[in-house]
């Protein structure tokens, strides 16, 4: 078992679907942080066998909507004094802005300058999102 130092103060993004941690690292722009960030891939999980975990050694503000959009099963643990002081469960956000791009080449977002890329939740059961403009479904990998 790989050991990463336990956090005194910071965030643990837990229950990330195995393989998704780099996407979250990129979208949350964790590369811009000065503090320590640990990415643990393929950690053992009781629920899903394998999961990814990200540990951040600072109490930064993160966009929970983005995390919920990527994977609503994620939990965020807020750590202070070496203890979990809050556990946040993600949910599918109603809309996300500038997280993913519309891939429809006929969409107005492909040509219009400075237009936000907005996706709206259209079917919560299927976790289905559509582009606000052209209504093309966002295809998850």
């Amino acid at each position: 078992m790989l050991n990463i130092d336990s956090l005194e103060k910071g965030l643990v993004i837990d229950h990330i679907q195995a393989g998704k941690s780099m996407e979250i690292y990129r979208v949350l722009e964790l590369d811009k942080l000065d503090c320590s960030v640990a990415i643990i891939k393929n950690a053992r999980s009781k629920k899903t066998e394998r999961k990814d975990i990200i540990k951040i050694e600072d109490r930064i503000d993160i966009d929970l909507d983005v995390l919920g959009f990527i994977d609503p099963h994620i939990t965020v643990n807020i750590i202070d004094g070496g203890q979990i002081i809050e556990k946040k469960q993600m949910k599918l956000p109603e809309r996300v802005t500038n997280v993913v791009k519309c891939k429809n080449p006929r969409c107005i977002t492909s040509v219009e300058q400075e237009l936000d890329q907005v996706f709206c939740l259209t079917n919560p059961e299927k976790a289905q999102y559509r582009c606000l403009y052209c209504e093309q479904e966002y295809a998850r990998k």
């Binding site: 969409c107 107005i108 977002t109 582009c131 403009y133 052209c134 209504e135 093309q136």
Partner: peptide, 10 residues
């Protein structure tokens, strides 16, 4: 009228 989808929404 515009050739791009969603132009009217914008």
């Amino acid at each position: 009228r515009h050739p791009k989808e969603g132009a009217a929404t914008v």
